[in-house]
Write a protein that binds this DNA or RNA. Structure first.
Lengths: 341, 341
DNA sequence: CTATGAAGCGAAAACGATTTCGACACGAGA
DNA sequence: TCTCGTGTCGAAATCGTTTTCGCTTCATAG
């Protein structure tokens, strides 16, 4: 004697309209073989009854969820809190939603039961995955990437999948060239872990030096880590204690710059009086601190949008869509942290 | 002549084990009426065959998704990018995952078709919703909150649902008392929009003044906005141009503080030499800028964890679980932005 | 020896949609 | 008149699970 459970189904509509469920389904999905008036009637009453389709049922039948997974891991707790990635995620979410897809997070366990990323994806039946800010050498990631599930990676290139990258080579080139244009010759480069991002930036950096006839000085190139102010402080101190210290220091990201700045301050050095600095990312806060940071702004929103769009395209034309490397460029945000010398 | 579609189902296991699908299902769900050896055999082969349950089917049958929705709206584009909220989200995600729930974003439209938040939730069949950082007067939010779906709100209290809040009254009280303890009497308070968060802070602020025998000065209480550096600059200028300016300014959040600081700097005022400042939030960056900000640190991680835990609890004991207001307290982060006078 | 009950398992009906295939009516061409 | 195509629609199978209820056994109490 159970009454309606609150949710209205396709069957309720069929009853009310005096047609079969098949007809309702077809009308709602704009099939061609339903009389226009019938279809309109059905759609109208569906609206009136506040019908909302049951994703689970649809998913079960069609084996697609209109749902995409995201893998954003916070190595070192900067994770979501890092504005670059949260900017990307936010934009991706908006774009995906516009295209009819929802976003759910993919983790490496669910309910205490550990599962691989791939299993989690299968479990949730996501149609595709967006991967960013993870350790791309993780076997779990590799498994996922090679599974055949549509995947877009961000800032890292596999050859089996499409990826979208901030144009790191161009960015480093532009930034370095800018510094050279301001008269700098002794340019230090603190870079992040040796990922492809770092490699591309190094290429851009070296190319800029070369194009301006400057010979690279190994001592000025030091390894730091992304988003690690502490590491950045150490690198900064090392550089400034060199017998012939650089006139400008480039940081791997704005967050690292903050660390560097506190060290410079501690050493009694002023920016840009004693040494100039440049960042990378262009997070909002970088324009509010003093000195206002000269930095290369990565267009996180655009990256997010493009990633989502490309992923959906891959999902919907899985056979014809070939892997592609999309790069989105940013621009220099000119602050007051670089002196003209 | 279709072969297995790659995914192994309960039926495949039943065939392999020579039992019925019902038995498999029961074994997997730890029902009592299956012989231990049978159950173990089934679970073992399930593992071997890499069985992963089909959520859609389960969801269809049980009408629960083990999936919770989150509503994080970025009014003014600070959204996810704001570390306080992304910190909450991140922690909530981790905790939910630990409890066996995934998280998907809820928006106000899907695939171009506008739908209410509630409809979106029904569409995705989420078991509950976490709401934060939205306009709580939005009819769509009200509809959702009163729909009977388990809901947890963050930093805002409805009486029909549980909410978890940073203890704003206590925080404002503690921070104000701290300032008084440092000798300040002329304390300005730039506050955010008149939400309940703001109201509680005002109560804490006034109570602290009263407890220390200071009479509140209306001119020192000015309305700003959360996370709006520009608005904050204006308020700062207004305050400092008063005939009898305050000796310390409290900002509604650390981000607003950054705006205020740039204005002070522009006016040629030094912090804390000419005027002291205090923030609210305790985002990481606040401890890297100079002067190091004295601020009230809200425990975003704890708020996220508690929210997710309480939501799951509400979902799983919908009848017995009564609405509750949970407050999680933070602590003062003592920086160098407040002078002793 | 029979009645009883528990323990272990399976048949089958859902859940709400999609989709194939056939049924039926009707107008037109032969 | 008969056939045939076309335009509309419905029956029914199906997706993978959960869950109820009944059917066997078999041991034990009577």
């Amino acid at each position: 004697m159970e009454k309606r459970k609150g949710t209205v189904t396709i069957k309720d509509i069929s009853r009310k309209c005096g047609v079969s469920v098949s007809t309702v389904s077809k009308a709602l999905n704009h099939y061609g073989d339903i009389a226009p008036e019938t279809a309109e009637l059905i759609r109208q009453t569906a609206r009136e009854m506040h019908y909302v389709p049951n994703t689970a049922a649809r998913q079960l039948k069609t084996n697609t969820s209109h749902n995409i997974g995201v893998l954003f891991v916070d190595e070192m707790n900067s994770g979501l809190a890092h504005e670059y990635f949260s900017g990307i995620l936010d934009a991706a979410r908006a774009e995906a939603e516009r295209l009819g897809y929802d976003i759910t997070f993919i983790g490496k366990n669910i309910g205490g039961k550990p599962m691989t990323y791939l299993e989690h994806c299968q479990y949730r039946k996501v149609d595709g995955v967006l991967i960013a800010n993870v350790d791309f050498s993780d076997p779990g990631i590799i498994e996922l990437v090679t599974s055949g599930l549509p995947v877009i990676t961000i800032d890292y290139a596999f050859d089996s999948t499409s990826c979208v990258m901030s144009d790191n080579m161009e960015g480093a080139y532009a930034l370095t060239s800018y510094l050279i244009g301001r008269g700098h010759r002794k340019i230090a480069f603190i870079h992040g872990e040796r990922t492809s991002v770092t490699n591309k930036r190094l290429v851009g950096f070296n190319r800029a030096l070369k194009d301006h006839g400057i010979v690279p000085d190994d001592r000025y190139i030091v390894q730091g880590r992304f988003h690690d102010p502490q590491k950045s402080r150490e690198a900064t101190r090392y550089l400034m204690e060199l017998p012939d210290p650089p006139t400008v220091i480039m940081y791997p990201d704005d967050f690292s710059y903050i660390g560097g700045m506190t060290e410079l301050e501690k050493m009694g050095l002023s920016v840009p009086g004693d040494v100039s600095t440049a960042g990378y990312d262009g997070i909002p806060i970088s324009q509010f601190i003093r000195p206002r940071l000269t930095t290369y702004h990565q267009d996180a929103a655009q990256i997010g949008r493009v990633s989502a769009a490309k992923l959906v395209e891959t999902i919907e034309n899985k056979k014809t869509c070939i892997p592609e490397e999309i790069s989105v460029s940013g621009h220099i945000l000119e602050g007051t942290s670089v002196a003209e010398i």
